[in-house]
Design a protein around this nucleic acid. Structure first.
Lengths: 215, 215
DNA sequence: CAGTCGTGAGAGCAGTGCTCTCGTTCTGGA
DNA sequence: TCCAGAACGAGAGCACTGCTCTCACGACTG
């Protein structure tokens, strides 16, 4: 039942965007809106469930794309595969992408249950960065600022990974650029300018991989 | 009158986020909601006015920050000044930033009147990239993909600037990374990880400037 | 057979964007 | 000075929203 509600809600999300209407979902299920409150205490709770699902779907896509690269030593290929996985998923499910990476809904605070799912994608990228580093690739960033070093230690602990400061820092930069590139395209900032979007994206992420991952 | 409505709307935007209520704005002005329709035909029209203002405010901030650098040959300093101008403005007016760079409102198509104002900030950055290129800085990106070259020609014509393909392309990458970094921070993706945000941002944009602008 | 529990329907509240009508007020020209 | 027309704001109303509350129905259990 929970799954059916989510499925219908996802369909509405895809067509109507972020302003999801509980009543419309209920109508589609041949029910009355109040009946939905048996299953989700509020609209926010439904949105949270959709957000967790979205994070996991993206995580699945990225992890799967990375794992599908048979030559594990081809770090550049793995990085690009992850990038395309993010972009392809975002293009396929733009509303769900906007839900997790778009402007936050005012008054909505992400519950802690989302953070675990949210970490999967950056974690997958960090693993690629680690392998790149282990293979001798060095990120081309300057010295790690002293003020940032403690933050990096916190992140390293939270992620439970073991890697140098500069690799971690540069990996976060790569993740940010990837997120920026996909958002830029998806949110319409590329309209009327770039048409060869896949080539544009791939070339861009290649350059990013070279600098921030050293691949 | 139009200005007063916008001012009140901006105040509401800052507190309540993107879901701007015409009725609340009217209430604040001691009027009834229908009276607002004398001045703006719809909520979307008001939002469009706010969006244009936001683009121009950001453009003012960035152009001003660039112009404030007295040593015009200090291209790296100008680049960082522009970056900080974008971030500072975004942190000061998060709702307006989200309005123009966040997930697009479903069913809202940006009118053509917005594109002119929207171009000011990337144009200011491109000017910095041009000066960097003229001073001998070369972006570290690979060969420009053939499929993207025609798009770059279009952009060059639209912007009315004269600069090599790789400089223009790398400049767009720098702009995207800047947008991504600011959005990432503003949309809460940095929460519970990075606390030294200004240092993190400056180091990051320094690395981006080195690679994509050659400064 | 009685009682409990899950389920859905319905009414209702406060809020939204938007349209329409109606009375008032201000202003420009004869 | 007068008056038509424009500008303006109020109010009612429509269809919609999230959410709460009460009530009735059916199934399962002791």
């Amino acid at each position: 039942m929970l799954a059916e509600i989510k499925a219908v809600a996802r369909r509405h999300l895809a067509t109507d965007g972020a302003n999801l209407s509980l009543r419309a979902v209920a109508r589609d299920m041949g029910m009355v809106s109040s009946a939905l409150y048996r299953y989700y205490a509020s609209r926010d709770e439904l949105l949270t469930a959709l957000i967790v699902d979205a994070y996991n779907a993206l995580g699945d896509a990225v992890e799967g794309a990375d794992a599908a690269v048979t030559d594990r030593g081809d770090v550049r290929g793995r990085w690009l595969a992850c990038c395309h996985a993010v972009r392809d998923w975002a293009l396929a499910e733009p509303a769900e992408y906007a839900l997790i990476f778009g402007s936050p809904v005012p008054g909505y605070a992400a519950p802690t249950e989302t953070v675990l799912a949210a970490r999967r994608t950056p974690l997958a990228l960090i693993r690629v960065a680690m392998d790149a580093s282990a293979a001798g690739g060095r990120p081309r960033i300057g010295d790690v600022p002293a003020a940032v070093a403690p933050d990096l230690a916190t992140v390293r602990d939270a992620l439970g990974v073991e890697l140098p400061d500069d690799v971690l820092l540069a990996g976060s930069y790569a993740w940010i650029h990837l997120f920026g590139a996909v958002s830029f395209e998806l949110f319409g900032q590329l309209n009327n300018t770039i048409t060869a979007r896949r080539e544009y994206f791939e070339h861009q992420m290649t350059a990013v991989g070279e600098q921030f991952l050293g691949v």
